[in-house]
C-alpha cells in the first residue's frame, strides 16, 4: 500500500458516498446513468469473486464487500425506490458495444486461461469504459447538478491517483500489471474533458454547462 493508492481508494469511497448523498438529498436519481451504475455492479461482482478464496487483507476484504454492496444498493434505489425520477429516454448508450469488445479483450489478454481470471480481466477492461454511458448522458443533456459533478470528479480522481501508484510500485516493488495499467490509463483519459469543465467552471462556482 502506498499513499497514492490509499488516497485513490478513499476517493473512490467518497465518490460512492457523494452519489448516495445526491440520491437521498434530492430524492432523485436524475442525471445519473442507470447503465453506468449497472456496469459498475457487473465490474465489482466479476472482479471480486476471489473474495471467497483469496485473502489479501482486512482492508481489501472490507472495501470489496462495500463496493459490491453499495453498487447493488444504488441499482435498487434507481430501479425501485426512485424509479420515477429516472428517465431511460436520455440514458441511451448501447452497452452491448462495451460488453462485447471487453469480452473479446479478456479472451485475448489475461494472466491465466481460467474462468475467474478471464472474468477478472473482463472486469478491468469493462471498468475502463463503464463511465461512458454517464458521460454520454452528460453530453446529451449539456448540464449537470453540482453534486453529480462532484461524484464524477471523485471517481475520476480515484482513477488518476492509481497512475502514480503504478509508477511508485514499478520503482519500489519492480512490479507492473500491464493489463490494469493500460486499462487504467484509458479510463483516466476518458475523464480529461470532464475535468477541464469541472476545474474551469464548477470549482469557480459556476454551474456545469457544456457549450451548445
Amino acid at each position: 500500500m502506498n499513499i497514492f493508492r490509499l488516497l485513490g481508494d478513499l476517493s473512490h469511497l467518497a465518490s460512492i458516498l457523494i452519489l448516495l448523498q445526491k440520491i437521498q438529498s434530492t430524492r432523485s436519481c436524475r442525471g445519473i446513468s442507470f447503465k453506468t451504475q449497472a456496469l459498475y455492479a457487473t465490474v465489482f461482482i466479476t472482479r471480486y469473486l476471489d473474495l471467497f478464496y483469496d485473502w489479501v487483507s482486512l482492508y481489501n476484504f472490507v472495501m470489496k464487500i462495500f463496493f459490491i454492496a453499495s453498487s447493488c444498493y444504488v441499482l435498487y434505489l434507481m430501479k425501485y425506490k426512485y424509479r420515477p425520477t429516472h428517465d431511460p429516454s436520455i440514458d441511451t448508450f448501447r452497452v452491448e458495444y462495451l460488453l462485447g469488445p471487453c469480452a473479446v479483450l479478456a479472451l485475448l489478454f489475461h494472466y491465466r486461461f481460467t474462468l475467474p481470471e478471464l472474468l477478472w480481466s473482463f472486469s478491468i477492461f469493462l471498468e475502463s469504459v463503464a463511465i461512458l454511458p454517464q458521460l454520454f448522458m452528460l453530453q446529451r443533456t449539456g448540464e449537470a447538478e453540482t453534486i453529480t459533478t462532484h461524484y464524477l470528479a471523485a471517481l475520476g480522481a480515484y482513477r488518476a491517483l492509481y497512475i502514480p501508484n503504478w509508477i511508485y510500485r514499478w520503482f519500489t516493488e519492480d512490479m507492473v500489471d500491464p493489463i490494469a495499467v493500460t486499462a487504467g490509463i484509458v479510463q483516466t483519459a476518458l475523464y480529461l474533458d470532464f475535468f477541464y469543465v469541472y476545474f474551469t467552471k464548477v470549482l469557480q462556482g459556476q454551474k456545469f454547462e457544456l457549450p451548445a
Binding site: R5, D50, S57, Y111, N165, E173, M175, D177, A180
Partner: peptide, 10 residues
C-alpha cells in the same frame, strides 16, 4: 521487472 496481476489492488 515482474509482470503480473496486481491482485492486492481494488
Amino acid at each position: 521487472s515482474m509482470w503480473g496481476p496486481a491482485k492486492d489492488e481494488l
